[in-house]
Amino acid sequence: MSDDEMIPRADVEQWWGTSITRISPGEIDLRGYPVQDLIGGASFAEVVWLLLRGELPERRQAALLEAALVASVDHGPQAPSIAAARMAVTCGLGLNNAVATGANLLGDVHGGAGQQCMDLLARIRERWRAGEDLDEVAADTVAEYRRRRQHVPGFGHRFHPRDPRRDPLLGLVADAAGEGVVAGEYLRAAQALEQALAAGRERPVPMNIDGATAVVYSELGFAPELGRGLFVLSRSVGILAHAWEERGSGARIKGPIPRRLLAAYTGPQQRRLPAR
């Protein structure tokens, strides 16, 4: 290769140019902070914020983020992401493969409601800030979802009449709003939506974990897509724990139902192949 054909060193260095991490022999800086200063000097939640946002959070912001991360770590092996990770382990896969298997199930249907709720709350807040009445906007939103026969993301739960994670998270947001740490607008939008969902019903439809964490992440200024990423980060802890527990069981090729049971067959009765 001639000198004219050589790629300039600066172009090579910028190929994966990043503002997140600087590395040189004996040195690692994260967003400008030496890693040795962050070790023992910042919490994991603070470092998550730092890497995603560029600056360290205030103490109360970090506490809110950590509370949301803790709230979403696990929901038992009936969750598809957890069950898949456990099945992967019984098929001989290592922990990295098992965690990846579980995390890869966290898509739009299983794991995506938080991001969808953040998008919805942002639209409600935008209309409210434009001058519309908040309660009317919430009622219009619920009516539109009912016309489309769709569930409002972040509300109701197939197992819990009232998600036990709702009240602690929303209480922390309310306290933070009262102290000026967050504005509280997304909290008010979510509460108005919750009231609109309960109107005309015998039983309310309270926020679930997806709705509560959507409020937290929105109040903290995270983009909706990052809200899903934070949920995946949190739930990966539970996926790892269940995969590790299953590895200790010694079970092999553990399917979705116990071996003594078979999935219901709904096809045609046994038949003979036609003579040819």
Rank of each mutant, 00 (worst) to 15 (best):
L121F: 13
L105S: 00
I23T: 14
A199V: 03
H157F: 07
A130T: 00
G200P: 04
G102P: 13
R276H: 12
P57C: 04
N104G: 14
S81Y: 04
P25Y: 10
K254V: 06
E179K: 09
A214S: 12
H75T: 02
R260A: 11
D140Y: 00
Q78E: 15
R22H: 14
A85E: 07
V232E: 06
D4Y: 08
E219W: 14
A139W: 10
G114K: 09
V73R: 09
G227K: 08
W15I: 11
Y186R: 01
R201L: 13
L121Q: 13
Y186A: 02
S234Y: 04
D135K: 14
G32S: 06
M118T: 04
Y265L: 06
T21F: 10
P204D: 03
A214Q: 09
S19R: 11
Q14F: 04
T101N: 10
G111R: 09
A103P: 09
A98I: 06
N97Q: 15
A212H: 10
F222M: 05
G156W: 07
L193I: 06
L30A: 03
S72F: 04
Q116A: 15
P153W: 06
L134Y: 03
G200S: 00
A67V: 07
R31S: 06
Y186G: 04
P8G: 04
V70D: 06
A264G: 09
A79V: 10
A10G: 02
E225G: 05
P80I: 15
R201G: 05
W15G: 08
A63K: 01
A176Y: 12
D3W: 14
A214F: 09
R166M: 12
T266S: 14
R86V: 02
L226G: 03
S218K: 12
W49G: 03
D74H: 12
A79K: 02
V237P: 04
L65W: 01
P25T: 11
G200Q: 01
E194G: 01
K254A: 13
S19I: 00
A84S: 15
Q116N: 10
L197H: 01
A113R: 10
L95P: 03
F159E: 11
P161S: 12
L69H: 02
